[in-house]
Design a protein around this nucleic acid. Structure first.
Lengths: 214, 214
DNA sequence: GACTCTCGTTACCGCAAGTAACAAAGTTCT
DNA sequence: AGAACTTTGTTACTTGCGGTAACGAGAGTC
């Protein structure tokens, strides 16, 4: 049959692509985001031009890698986000899921946050807004959706949910990044502290000495 | 006097350094963070080796640039942070100062967030924790200090203030980044939304339909 | 006048991204 | 079977960047 023939080809191409991605993954995890295309090709047992035929350029390869990992993390987060528990517990579960993921393999996490290097050879006009890690954007949008569909925020809910989605994700990310570097406390403590912040403890706390506190 | 001679030399060297930094600034603002050393040298009217004599390597130059801008931004933020007003107003003023700064020239902002590229030629062992933008770390620490010295947080104030410092800075950064890209609302609206989030409105809001809300 | 020290140059090395040109294998059409 | 084509892979090249070595010229110093 002709269909089997074409399907075989396509399946073979896809399998090859997955193999290449896995090799690239190994190299990036070992050598960091600056791994060379030669190194990746060598790890995969082939040479550069094949990589370029499959992924176009280095950006394409890295994007494919990032999508893989981002999808995996997003699945885990969605599960925590959709659990049938009280809001605070769910927030804590989501925070903990994220932190556990970046704790489990920081290399992946690091790679996801610095995917865009670009030879900069291109046009000088760069648009701010596309530069930062796409993972954070996706997370922010995802969280925004969940917030808007679940929480009653009054008339401005569309705007508020998005601001909060991105804001909370950024909070989680920055705190997690700092925590990974310094390890000043347990994961559970960090989760509780962040949830406390989101629960308005900053506003509720009293001033320390004289004058108006922060 | 010998001192005048040496002072003249030192002053000349420092002036030269400042000139070079300003040239580098212009190029980086024009071409983005991937600007080449050749381009920077050309803009300064000289050639590469001089840059290397002054700054060691590209990282040194970029670090010097980053310190300049970071200091400037930090000064502005400290002013907002130290104003003699109520806590909420101060938080809003700080948020607004930061957002106004990144709105005023996004190129600088973008450069500050992606300073560490590294040829990756070096050792494979990379330490997570040093990779992210140093600006965010400095901001987080600064804010943590202010929080701890002004707000009464009970026994765990040392930990809480640092978690919150980095978390709030991350929130501000991520929300600002998204906002810069999409411009979904005015700066004032964004500031209010973020302050509302910090003031516990997420915890206070009711569920939307049936079941436990987010 | 020789000595040195700073500022500057040109010319080069190494390396990585990306590409062109070619080689060998299987597939398909006649 | 044999010619044409697509797939899969190669080697060898170009371009451009970070970084450095080696050299050149002017200004103070003994």
């Amino acid at each position: 049959m002709e269909t089997t023939g074409r399907t075989d080809q396509e399946r073979s191409a896809e399998r090859r692509r997955r193999e290449l991605l896995e090799a690239a993954d190994r190299v990036v995890l070992r050598d960091g985001p600056g791994a060379s295309m030669n190194a990746i090709a060598a790890e995969a047992g082939i040479t550069k031009p094949i990589l370029y035929r499959h992924f176009g350029d280095k950006g394409g390869l890295y994007k494919a890698l990032a999508v893989r990992h981002t999808d995996a993390l997003l699945d885990a987060l969605r599960a925590a986000l959709d659990a049938p528990s009280a809001r605070r517990e769910r927030v804590e579960a989501t925070l903990d899921t994220y932190l556990a993921a970046i704790e489990a393999n920081p290399q992946v996490y690091r790679f996801l946050m610095h995917p865009a290097e670009g030879t900069s050879q291109g046009e000088g006009a760069f648009d701010v807004g596309l530069h930062s890690a796409p993972l954070l954007r996706r997370l922010g949008e995802e969280l925004a959706e969940v917030i808007e569909e679940r929480v009653d925020l009054g008339p401005e809910s569309a705007l508020l949910s998005r601001v909060w989605g991105h804001g909370i994700v950024g909070m989680m990310h920055a705190a997690g990044d700092w925590w990974l570097g310094e390890r000043p406390c347990s994961r559970a403590q960090l989760v509780r502290s962040l949830a406390d912040l989101l629960w308005g403890r900053l506003a509720a706390a009293g001033d320390r000495v004289g004058g108006p506190g922060f």
